[in-house]
Nucleic acid binder design. Structure first.
Lengths: 372, 372
DNA sequence: ACCACGCATGAGCAATTGCTCAACGGCCGG
DNA sequence: CCGGCCGTTGAGCAATTGCTCATGCGTGGT
């Protein structure tokens, strides 16, 4: 894979100009003279030489090419960064199957974490199969005094290793750091229980610590029947399906968003025990991992919500997300209710216990991919 | 024609290092982030990022390519610059025939002069067909108050337009500047006449002015039967032939040198009325033009003498000179008398009048291509 | 012919970059 | 096991670079 700087109108230059530009560029870029020196040589002022050199680059007389290894997708990564205002995007080259894709993504994410973490770092951790896989690959060369904090409650059901607490433990084990568990379920019966729980010192202190994290590692969840929320037993298949009918496309730490990145105030949200989005936003580097084959919509929505700073994703999803993002999206800043999947709240009896009325979807913070 | 920065050992890097280098380079060179930003992003110190970027360039991960027009020979020019320590080298692409070559060289030289000259500049001027052709192409966009000074005497014979005085006049006309003629023949009868002539205010003042020039435009002369010295009647065919047998390969302003660039103290030198080489060396930019097909040896010798700062030459000569220079040359700094064409002084009755004994070739300034 | 607009120009300054240097740490030999 | 050596690191500084601004020149429109 390779990448070039933008090539411009190479022909709109007269011969003489072209010659000057090329010669100037040769002296500056290849022979590594200073701008002052080349200017002197060509009988120009330094500023003029600088302007000409800039023009040479714009015009494509100077082409800078990165001889990247074939397994890097620097162009996709740049496109993701630019499209969604990300700080960093890492694309894992497509593998033979979904499992291999996940492993590849996890590996790249692990490498990224290893580079970022320092002694004393605090990492807020979410759940998910990919996040869990990250922990398996996370093996820094030397021990790191890093604290991993659960940023979401656990689940009673099966599929234990994808639990935030478990992921934390595995990550801490990988580097000789500390794991701070959140002793609470991801979803409780109702808002009342939730606020009681949040009042507990043990819960509150963990969430506070997560809120002060330097970095967050979260998985992007989907709304399909096989998503982590369902697999882990946090939500029932029906609940997730219903969320989908409400326009939800995916979540981060249980915070569901629609395709335009707007948070979805579903009744479930009242029952969620996790780091609030506003707190998550305050974390300097929110690293999201995503790799399942049916994730493009989830990733797109989450990226548009602007919570994510760093995305680690497989090549297939990356391409799909960029393609989807290129299509003009339904009304966002305009305030119009989007068409298509965004149906108004319908009759759904929330869940065995949650009785809170279906909330209107008005009055939320503006989405937009950029935030700081 | 194109040119790349040195490609290094691209394979001696591990995958991870390679990835880091490529990604760093992408962010810095393509996305135009500052080193500080990319360092921050990758969790490195600025210095480390800088070192890695440098390594990326050395290793060839970053390739800078100049998209030069096909009629530029930047690679040859760089090679000439480096081989002979030139400040600048301009190679005119090969044309259909020798005349066209000369025109091309003259045109490039004229463009170079136009770029270099400023109001108030003083230019010392030599003779020759190419120099004369330069004058024909010399047409700056706006008038320039430049003084062109003859740096060598004239010739009584035919081929008037190649005379320094004529070249000066033509150049001055080209830009609306002033021409300062040297009212003396290039070669006089004997050393006595020469010193008398040099004592004349008119001659001395012109040569003084030439000595103080900001730039010099000189032709590189050969030692063949058709060289300018012969054509213009300055020297007889026999005299030039004899100079050749003495090891002379070419001249600048009548100062002949051998293939190693050492000045040749021939009897003719005693009779020459021209700016002395030591003075010529003091001129900041000595621009030499050369274009005849039989010039490689002359150009090589002159370049090795180190008088020239800027060379404008045709492609054929450029290649021939570089090829010849690549071959190990006969003893130079070693002091041994070079083999081959360098025969010891032989019986030659200098000329109708010059009676000075053939001089030994000992005790000259060190040659070497570099000087300042 | 005059004026207004706009682009090019070079001065000066702030940011970025490259380099030097002392300190650190790991590695090898004693 | 200890000491010296080499490679690596980041601090600090000097050089280089990029940018902003006031000025001037040319161009085109009254």
């Amino acid at each position: 894979m390779s990448n070039c700087s933008t090539a411009g109108p190479l022909d709109s230059l007269r011969q003489d100009d072209y010659e000057l530009l090329a010669r100037l560029a040769q002296r500056y870029y290849i022979d590594e003279q200073t701008q002052d020196q080349v200017a002197r040589e060509f009988g120009l002022s330094r500023q003029k030489a600088q302007r000409l050199l800039k023009r040479a680059r714009q015009a494509g007389v100077v082409a800078i090419h990165i001889e990247a290894p074939s397994w890097l997708r620097l162009d996709l990564e740049s496109e993701l960064r630019e499209t969604f205002g990300l700080e960093e995007a890492v694309v894992a080259v497509a593998q033979a199957n979904a499992d291999a894709d996940r492993e590849a993504v996890a590996q790249r994410a692990a490498r990224y974490l290893e580079r970022q973490l320092r002694d004393g770092s605090v990492v807020a951790v979410g759940h998910g199969r990919t996040a869990s896989a990250v922990a398996r690959f996370f093996r820094p060369v030397d021990r790191l005094a890093v604290t991993f904090v659960s940023a979401m409650g656990g689940s009673p059901g099966a599929d234990a290793p994808t639990n935030p607490n478990e992921v934390c433990r595995a990550l801490a084990q990988g580097c000789g750091g500390r794991a701070e568990s959140l002793y609470a379920p991801a979803y409780v019966e109702d808002a009342g229980v939730r606020s009681q729980l949040l009042a507990q010192a043990a819960v509150r202190s963990t969430l506070d610590m997560a809120a002060g994290a330097d970095l967050a590692l979260v998985g992007i969840g989907g709304v399909d029947d096989d998503c982590t929320m369902v697999r882990s037993g946090c939500l029932s298949r029906e609940e997730v399906t219903w969320l989908g009918t409400q326009g939800a496309v995916g979540d981060v730490l249980g915070h569901y968003v629609d395709l335009d990145g707007r948070p979805l105030a579903s009744p479930h949200h009242q029952r969620l025990v996790a780091l609030p989005v506003e707190h998550l936003r305050r974390v300097k580097k929110v690293v999201a991992v995503a790799s399942e084959p049916e994730k493009p919509a989830a990733v797109l929505g989450i990226l548009r919500s602007g919570v994510v700073d760093v995305l680690v994703v497989d090549e297939t999803n990356a391409r799909a997300v960029l393609q989807a993002a290129a299509r003009p999206r339904a009304g966002t800043a305009t305030g119009r209710a989007p068409a298509g999947p965004m149906v108004p709240a319908t009759r759904y009896q929330p869940s065995p216990a949650a009785k809170a009325a279906t909330l209107s979807r008005a009055g939320r913070d503006a989405p937009g991919p950029h935030r700081r």
